[in-house]
């Protein structure tokens, strides 16, 4: 049995590796297909043909695409992400600080939303079809149906415009006290928490409801088990795989959420950096940010699948 788990996990990791290669290939070529010549863009329309030619050589732009891809991939593996076109700084340097900021935001959101969402999701499943469950379901449909920027603007409208508690649409980089910290992070974190909790509540509720409908839970009921025992002793251990899967998938949704939230709140994270890079068409920067996002996403989905494998009692 142990042997089967190991081989299943290895198979999943192999798939992740293949996916990672296909994804980096896709990201590289999507950006490499850019119309217009990179050298001309960099040097401007007024540059002499000799200068353009020289730069093309220096950047290996005339090599076949597959070589450029491999060279770039090798760079990525060694942490060399290239040099930004826009301001001639190494991409790695531009990204590092921003990445930390985004991770802070994402981490804080995760710490708040995971326990919150699981509590709500599991209680909703326990109290299925009660008023509590129905209200929660309606609220979730509301949240998943509106774009993230709307939740962000609502937060601004509520906290900054009407209540006047927090500064609107600006992020102060001077954080000295816990109070400053709370003020700075409150709105982005609240927005992201609302967005990803909705997904997580919905999926964890569905997972628990499904296990509550199984014959072995009915059997436990007929043994005289209490409602709490049914949920915590019989349903939850079996719903664990799907729930963890829901958590990981929802967290991967964070990656999409931060793009909007960082822009709305002008938060100096990697997503904002990327949106700015898109408007300046700064290729190496876009590629690197995209790869980081894709790998983050891949990491979370792979983790989710592996945990689902490990938590399957039939494989124990």
């Amino acid at each position: 049995m142990k042997h089967r788990i190991v081989s299943l996990v290895l198979a999943r990791l192999a798939i992740a590796l293949v996916t990672a290669i296909i994804v980096s290939f896709a990201v590289f070529f999507a950006t490499a297909m850019l119309p217009g010549d990179t050298a001309t863009i960099l040097l401007g329309q007024a540059a002499t043909p000799e200068a353009v030619e020289g730069l093309r050589k220096a950047m290996h732009l005339d090599d076949p695409a597959i070589f450029r891809f491999l060279r770039w991939l090798a760079g990525v593996v060694h942490g060399d992400l290239g040099v930004s076109y826009a301001n001639n700084m190494p991409v790695a340097k531009l990204i590092s600080g921003r990445l930390v900021n985004t991770l802070k935001l994402a981490g804080l959101t995760a710490v708040i939303s995971v326990p919150l969402a699981l509590t709500l999701g599991i209680t909703a499943a326990m109290l299925r079809n009660t008023l509590y469950d129905r209200c929660l379901t309606i609220a979730i449909i509301g949240v998943v149906s509106v774009p993230e920027f709307m939740i962000a603007t609502l937060a601004v409208l509520l906290f900054a415009v009407y209540l006047n508690w927090l500064p609107a649409v600006s992020f102060t980089s001077e954080i000295r006290t816990v109070y400053d910290f709370a003020r700075a992070y409150a709105m982005p974190v609240v927005t992201l928490t609302v967005v990803i909790s909705a997904q997580m509540i919905r999926m964890s509720r569905a997972a628990v409801v499904e296990t509550l409908n199984t014959p072995y839970v009915e059997m436990a009921l007929l043994k005289g088990a209490s409602r709490g025992r049914l949920v915590f002793h019989h349903a939850l251990p079996n719903a664990l795989g799907p729930i963890v899967n829901a958590v990981a998938l929802s967290l991967s949704y964070l990656l999409g959420g931060v793009i909007i939230v960082e822009t709305v709140f002008n938060y100096p994270g990697i997503a904002k950096l990327m949106v700015d890079a898109v408007s300046t068409r700064d290729l190496p920067l876009i590629q690197s940010c995209a790869i980081i996002f894709c790998f983050g996403y891949l990491f979370l989905t792979t983790t989710a699948d592996i945990i689902a494998i490990l938590s399957n009692p039939r494989l124990r």
Binding site: Y216, V217, M219, A220, P237, N238, P313
Partner: peptide, 13 residues
Amino acid sequence: YVPQSAAAAFNPA
């Protein structure tokens, strides 16, 4: 109660 399908009535975990 003795169920029809014991395979389904035992909790796999």
